[in-house]
C-alpha cells in the first residue's frame, strides 16, 4: 500500500511537471523587456546612443539577439556579459568594476574628499586666527549689508 502511495506521488509529480512545463517556457519577450536590457548597452555602430533607441539595422539585430537570449531564460547580467565578451567591453554603459577600470570609480571620490579636507582645514585655520585675533571679529555687525534688514530696522525704529 505504502509503496503504491509513493508511486502515485511520483506519477502525479511527474504529470504536474509535464503539464506545468508549458508555463515554465517563457513566451516571446516583449519589446519592453528587450529595451530594458538594451538601454543598459551601447552599440559601436551608433556611438553614444543607447542600444534601445539606435535606429540602425545592426542595432535592430542586436535587440533581436537580446530577445532570443531572454527567451532562452538568460537574465540581464548574463546577456550583458555575453555582449561584452562578444563585442568588447565598450558595449557596457559603465566599465566593469575590475582592473584598471576601478580608477573610474575611485578617483572622483578621492579628489572630492581631498577638496573637503582642504575646505575643512581652511575653515579651521580661519577659526584659530580669529581666536588669536581676539574672538569674533564682526566687521560690520551681523548682516549690515542686507538691504532688507536695514528696512526692517527702519521699521522697528518707526514703530
Amino acid at each position: 500500500m505504502k509503496r503504491f502511495l509513493w508511486i502515485f506521488l511520483a506519477v502525479s509529480l511527474f504529470s504536474l511537471v509535464w503539464v506545468g512545463n508549458v508555463f515554465a517556457q517563457k513566451p516571446t519577450p516583449s519589446d519592453d523587456e528587450v529595451n530594458a536590457v538594451a538601454s543598459q548597452m551601447f552599440c559601436p555602430v551608433c556611438e553614444n546612443t543607447p542600444l534601445d533607441v539606435c535606429p540602425t539595422q545592426a542595432c535592430a539585430q542586436w535587440r533581436e539577439l537580446i530577445r532570443t537570449k531572454l527567451s532562452e531564460g538568460w537574465n540581464a547580467d548574463q546577456i550583458k556579459q555575453y555582449f561584452a565578451t562578444q563585442y568588447g567591453v565598450r558595449v557596457l554603459a559603465e566599465p566593469p568594476r575590475q582592473g584598471l577600470n576601478w580608477l573610474v570609480y575611485i578617483v572622483p571620490p578621492f579628489l572630492i574628499v581631498i577638496g573637503v579636507y582642504i575646505l575643512f582645514r581652511a575653515f579651521r585655520s580661519m577659526h584659530t586666527v580669529n581666536q588669536l585675533a581676539g574672538g569674533e571679529t564682526e566687521p560690520n555687525g551681523p548682516a549690515t549689508d542686507e538691504y532688507t534688514s536695514r528696512i526692517e530696522e527702519e521699521l522697528k525704529k518707526r514703530n
Binding site: 559601436p44 539585430q61 542586436w62 533581436e64
Partner: peptide, 10 residues
C-alpha cells in the same frame, strides 16, 4: 572574412 559587430543567425 571578419564579421564586424554582427549577430550570428543573420
Amino acid at each position: 572574412g571578419v564579421d564586424y559587430v554582427d549577430t550570428e543567425p543573420e
